[in-house]
Design a protein around this nucleic acid. Structure first.
Lengths: 99, 99
DNA sequence: CGGCATCCGCTAAGATACTG
DNA sequence: CAGTATCTTAGCGGATGCCG
């Protein structure tokens, strides 16, 4: 539980994982799939996911360079969790404005 | 989904909801159930939950004062989400140290 | 008992510019 | 293409002290 909270800190983390659940993505593909994310942020999150064994990074030494990010089995097991979040979010009858 | 992310920002938010899933709690009861949380943080999270309709706050004008926090039906529907998180967290075979 | 006020550190994230 | 570097902002959370 604590691990989950640390790993998926910040609004972008879960969105990135969600995107990767659709299959492996290149850096640019992720940027396109996640409007408004900065390369800085994207890199930062991906590096953490890598360090925690959620994602594997594969660099192909080509010209131009190509890098692929793919979920590990551990990362893929996050699917149900994100689905539960999504279910909850879309079940809200009357969005309460707050703050 | 976005709503979920905003609401449950920070490591304490989910833990507080989790505690309230066990039933209504007084302020002090929450503090005891959540070791190390500061009153500042607890108040801050509870106020946000209130503003977003996740929690209702009931103050009893007694001496000494008593305040009860109770999940709304919306808040209670978070149960499955937190369960999914917990399931994932406890399913980790070999915790990877990182960062 | 149940807070609020204030200050402060840490980190997620944005903006911008540049590189192998 | 896939980043890195630097600077800045904003919000969570801890610490301390006071109050009705």
């Amino acid at each position: 539980m604590a691990r989950f909270l640390v790993l998926l800190e910040g609004p972008w983390a879960t969105l990135i994982v969600r995107e990767l659940l659709h299959g492996p993505h290149r850096f640019t593909e992720l940027r396109e799939a996640l409007p408004r994310i900065s390369p800085h942020t994207l890199t930062s999150r991906l590096r953490r996911f890598e360090a925690h064994g959620l994602v594997v990074r594969t660099a192909y030494p080509e010209i131009p360079p190509r890098v692929e990010y793919r979920l590990t089995p551990l990362g893929e097991r996050l699917g149900p969790v994100l689905q539960a979040m999504s279910d909850w979010a879309t079940s809200i009858p009357d969005p309460v404005r707050g703050r």
